[in-house]
């Protein structure tokens, strides 16, 4: 039952990644693209966590934490860049 649940969950996350990718290509505005990228970061954390559960190790936790931190910082940096046209004032 657990492997079935992991399969279903992974499928849902992969479909969500495709939807995010569609939004990333379609736009229409730059904020839409940033939002799509941010959601993609979070969904890829979900994918890594699911892989960690199916492999039965806690090794992938660090990767997930790093992606979470870098995703947050890069989203804020991109927002700041298109808001002010500069990163460090």
């Amino acid at each position: 039952m657990l492997s079935t649940a992991i399969m279903i969950s992974t499928t849902l996350v992969c479909i969500s990644l495709m939807l995010n990718l569609w939004r990333l290509f379609k736009g229409p505005g730059r904020p839409d693209r940033i939002l799509a990228l941010d959601t993609m970061y979070i969904n890829s954390i979900a994918l890594i966590i699911l892989f960690g559960i199916s492999a039965g190790t806690a090794l992938y936790f660090e990767a997930a934490l790093l992606i979470a931190m870098l995703g947050f910082v890069s989203t804020v940096a991109m927002c700041k860049y298109i808001l002010r046209g500069d990163l460090i004032e």
């Binding site: 849902l12 996350v13 969500s16 939807l19 979070i42 979900a46």
Partner: peptide, 19 residues
């Protein structure tokens, strides 16, 4: 399994809303 399915469904709903 319940937590996994629940989480997957909510992640999917988030992206569906985005699309």
């Amino acid at each position: 399994s319940a937590f996994l399915i629940f989480g997957g469904v909510f992640v999917f709903i988030g992206s569906l809303g985005l699309a």
